[in-house]
Design a protein around this nucleic acid. Structure first.
Lengths: 182, 182
DNA sequence: TGCTAAACGGCGGGGGTCTCCGTATCGTAT
DNA sequence: ATACGATACGGAGACCCCCGCCGTTTAGCA
């Protein structure tokens, strides 16, 4: 990769991060190009489509989350290990503007992106779920948990305190809105 | 309202419903105008913004849901009454393309639309929640329940079987993903 | 110091939103 | 039956965005 290409790539990534934090996942690519001081063609060369840009912007964050999942595998308190991780994912999804929408979109992407963020998170979280299977409602999968979290994050996106609200709602779903009285 | 205006309004509403069912809440207003055989100005006159169009398209459905909530008030089995209604809302939100997004958007609309769909549903569902308060987790509000439902609907929008998946996820949150072991 | 392949910028086409205004039409008052 | 004012219509124009393409510049190697 040529030096100028590297520079532009880095600049674009930085600008895109700000712009997405400001305007969400639908931020204008044109505007990002303008702010980065490059032509719109350059954006498109580095990131063929919006999905690619989102993936690049959130890559580090997602990988950190995956790493934290792996760190927690093997802990004796399997339930706490899982719930702590899910809480972290919830906070990230609710706090980082655009992330929830990005996750939601690549869930429904037609082509199987082998390494899209959702897939990564699913694979990283799977062991945590498996080892906590005993304390989970029967039939619950990692995919379910991530779907619920992204849903909650989407629904709280414009709340004054997204992370707080999202955390509260997720806690409710963990405990049950109305557990079967018996 | 002049006769031609009424005709166009009705045509637009019908076309918009189809188009939104097909392409979601972001359907092109221009395209709707074209299909209805009217100028784009006419669309904009009847519905000043996208929110107004969505509200009009979903009004009947939302009112039906509200009516069903009222029908269930006073039933002795308060828990079932509430859960049945929430199930109906979930199915609607997950089945009717664009509805979940519309609900989610008017939740975050800055100006307090006195009678936006979410407000209506909240008011209609409130009595059901109050009378079932005893069997609900403490602190749960109608707004919470509706937020969770729209979140779930958003997250399952592109699933092969949205209603089924949404229903399943909602059932999970009702029962609890991992009820406190005691 | 040349040279070539890679990277760049921006143009043009297609489409969308929103505003505005000249024109056609409806409904009524005469 | 007709004339007239209010109302609704349609589409042009300004602006923005996405996307593909191509002539030009430039980095990095020989």
């Amino acid at each position: 990769m040529r030096a100028d290409a590297q520079r532009n790539y880095a600049r674009l990534l930085a600008v895109a991060e700000e712009e997405i934090a400001l305007n969400g996942a639908d931020a204008s690519l044109e505007q990002i190009a303008r702010l980065a001081g490059v032509g719109s063609g350059t954006v498109r060369r580095h990131f063929p489509n919006r999905h690619a840009l989102l993936a690049a912007v959130f890559r580090d964050r997602v990988e950190t989350l995956c790493a934290h999942a792996r760190d927690r595998v093997g802990r004796p308190d399997t339930r706490a290990a899982l719930l702590e991780w899910l809480g972290e994912v919830t906070t990230s999804a609710a706090t980082i503007r655009g992330l929830a929408m990005a996750l939601n979109r690549d869930r429904s992407a037609d082509t199987e992106h082998e390494h899209c963020a959702t897939t990564q998170l699913t694979e990283a979280g799977e062991p945590l779920v498996r080892q906590a299977a005993g304390v989970l409602a029967p039939g619950v999968t990692v995919a379910d948990l991530l779907a619920l979290i992204t849903g909650i994050a989407l629904a709280t996106e414009d709340h004054p305190d997204p992370a707080g609200e999202a955390g509260r709602l997720f806690a409710l779903t963990v405990a049950g809105l109305s557990p079967e009285p018996r």
